[in-house]
């Protein structure tokens, strides 16, 4: 029996943040009250806001519980510091947890998910089954099992689910 839980998440918020010229990650982090990681990583701060490193000088802002004015509030806080684009509708989010979650990811992406290499707080933008994905690892669940979240573009979602279901069936 495979130890894998697949959940489609809703109610989250995502936005692209790209630093303006000469603005450091630190300045952006200070404006938002969260660490803005310089490498691919998932950094959670207070107020249910996280920053995920997606490139040099660019991040996803992430919240588990979005409100209609969330991204405009972000934009206001980052005025002059960064360009902000709402992406809450552009992506679908899937959560994979359980002992077999790592195997599923390892069957999809050509990056190393060994716990020493991809520990809680790690993140990566890569590709699974020809579909672009952003993957980050949350803290382990209450039973100490790994928990990952995968963002894919909305239009690819059905194709991604087909890959996920076929791969999970082979566990």
């Amino acid at each position: 029996m495979a130890d894998l839980l697949v959940e489609q998440l809703s109610g989250f918020g995502l936005a692209t943040i790209m630093a303006r010229k000469g603005v450091s990650g630190m300045a952006i982090g200070m404006a938002l009250g969260v660490e803005a990681p310089a490498q691919p990583a998932f950094c959670r701060g207070e107020n249910n806001l996280a920053l995920i490193g997606t490139g040099a000088g660019s991040w996803f802002a992430h919240t588990d519980m979005v409100s209609p004015a969330w991204h405009t509030a972000l934009r206001d806080r980052l005025a002059e510091l960064a360009s902000v684009s709402d992406q809450s509708d552009g992506y679908m989010l899937i959560r994979l947890s359980g002992e077999d979650a790592r195997t599923v990811l390892q069957r999809g992406a050509a990056i190393d998910f060994h716990p020493e290499v991809f520990a809680p707080g790690a993140a990566a933008t890569t590709v699974i089954a020809h579909i672009g994905v952003v993957i980050w690892r949350r803290d382990d669940d209450a039973r100490g099992r790994p928990k990952y979240e995968i963002a894919t573009f909305r239009s690819y979602f059905d194709s991604f689910r087909r890959w996920l279901d076929h791969t999970a069936a082979a566990l």
Binding site: P40, G55, A56, A110, I111
Partner: peptide, 12 residues
């Protein structure tokens, strides 16, 4: 990749 680390060339 200087940001992402070593990756398959097909990502580029």
């Amino acid at each position: 990749c200087p940001y992402c680390g070593e990756r398959d060339a097909q990502e580029f």
